[in-house]
């Protein structure tokens, strides 16, 4: 195998892996805070992508410029959803909560189908089709930007959760709700903020990833599955582990395809996941 091809495949694997990590970060956040597995995770991200498309089509604003407004909008939607829907249901148990998010999948997919139709859409950004070359290695700029955002967000979330008062409150609520309440922590407000942050991040990441995908209303569940694998692989609740897990999966997939063809490449991350679960049930970077 020529070395330039090998280098390119490894780099591409790392870039795709960072995208996988970016998709998984907010799923990790929401799961870490409330134990809720958000099956509508990917669909919220797709909704953000469609929102970026709609704004681009209507007023010509580049999706990258919409990242922050979409974060704000989705944060509000997330906190509202938590207070109005998730919290009342969560009191009945996590399984009911998971069912609720499954219901959201169908609502969101069908709403997008009604509004945008089922045709594939590509959403160009200012960086679409732009590459930079380092020697023989070519880096697509949209992937490079998404990787940078993934790294920054992983560190930001790690610091937020481990080094701030809000993070301590979140961890306290996660570990023992009753004790946290006795310490004066406003449980519902903390959970709503954390859930809103998780959904808000989907708004932000949707804007950064929109150029990478060909949009269809039903692609969300695929993204949720991908996020779930990365989250479990890296270690549930560990944001840096999530980044590491995504990168490893991307490289395994890329090199598996390069050396053994597409079928082995597609299978390799799942084999790796099974191995990790057997040897380190809490994930590669997870803690007991």
């Amino acid at each position: 195998m020529p070395i330039d091809v090998l280098l390119q495949a490894t780099t591409q694997g790392l870039l795709m892996g960072s995208i996988y990590a970016l998709v998984a970060l907010s799923l990790t956040l929401i799961f870490a805070v409330g134990g809720l597995l958000n099956f509508a995770h990917g669909d919220f991200m797709v909704l953000a992508m469609y929102a970026a498309f709609a704004v681009l089509a209507a007023v010509g604003v580049d999706p990258y410029l919409l990242a922050v407004p979409l974060f704000g909008l989705f944060f509000l939607v997330g906190t509202g959803l938590f207070r109005g829907l998730v919290r009342p249901v969560l009191s009945e148990g996590l399984l009911v909560g998971a069912q609720l998010t499954l219901g959201m999948v169908f609502v969101l997919q069908n709403a997008m189908l009604l509004i945008f139709g089922g045709d594939h859409l590509s959403v160009p950004t200012v960086l679409s089709n732009r590459n930079v070359a380092f020697g023989t290695v070519i880096l697509p700029l949209p992937l490079l930007v998404a990787s940078a955002v993934a790294a920054i967000l992983s560190i930001f979330l790690y610091v937020l959760l481990m080094r701030t008062d809000f993070g301590r409150q979140v961890r306290a609520v996660t570990q023992n709700r009753d004790a946290a309440a006795l310490m004066g922590i406003p449980i519902v407000r903390v959970q709503a903020k954390a859930f809103g942050l998780g959904i808000g991040l989907l708004g932000l990441t949707g804007a950064f990833l929109v150029a990478q995908f060909t949009l269809t209303p039903s692609m969300g569940l695929d993204l949720t599955l991908l996020a779930l694998i990365v989250m479990v692989f890296g270690g549930i609740g560990n944001f840096l582990g999530c980044l590491g897990g995504g990168l490893i999966i991307g490289v395994i997939e890329g090199l598996g395809t390069l050396f053994f063809g597409g079928t082995v490449g597609a299978m390799a991350p799942y084999v790796a996941l099974v191995l990790v679960l057997l040897l380190r049930p809490h994930g590669l970077f997870g803690e007991h």
Partner: peptide, 20 residues
């Protein structure tokens, strides 16, 4: 003959294999 799983998220590794 290189098999590719329908639903693949990136074809770059496939093109690289062809290139090699």
């Amino acid at each position: 003959a290189i098999p590719v799983e329908p639903g693949v998220k990136d074809m770059t590794p496939v093109v690289l294999r062809v290139k090699s």
